[in-house]
Amino acid sequence: MITLEAVWSEAAQQRVYRRLLQTLARPGIIADLGDLDLGAPAWTAVLACLGDEAVTLADPLGLLDARTRGLLGMPSSGPAEATFVIAAGNRPPPAGLLPRNGTLLDPEQGATLVLTVDALGQGRTLDLRGPGIAASSRLGVGNLDPAWIALRSRLDDAPRGIDLILADQTCCACLPRTTRISGGT
């Protein structure tokens, strides 16, 4: 009998989904998935929770192994067309990377970037303001290359834009396109 890690189970994905939802609703909050014993890094948990055969994934740096790609079931596509792009946050964006940021009629078509980072809650601090934040919020992101924030700003053309999900081994945090970021660049 084939036994899969908990990250591929419906129950675990529902728990991840609810925590992820909180981090989207309250930018700056860090969701710790460590207690779920997922058997996979948080970035895999995020993709397992959000991805399926109806959305596409670009992995220009080859961060995911073949087994994970197979279990995710997300068709591959180029970074410019992908619904989800996974990349390493501690390195600058790959040359020429320009994820889609939707259209005025379909702003939800903007891509979601899942960035692997060294550690959430530590390192350089981002100051956050905007919807879901009472006054301001701070998010520590270990070793996030500032070019990612610059790329996000370049694609910000409300309501068009991209959404970032930052994930380390056990935690994740979200920077939706509506969040205003200062610091970290």
């Binding site: 994905q13 399926d52 109806a54």
Partner: peptide, 10 residues
Amino acid sequence: AYRATRPRLG
């Protein structure tokens, strides 16, 4: 709403 969270297998 719950349905929207479930993966589409095909």
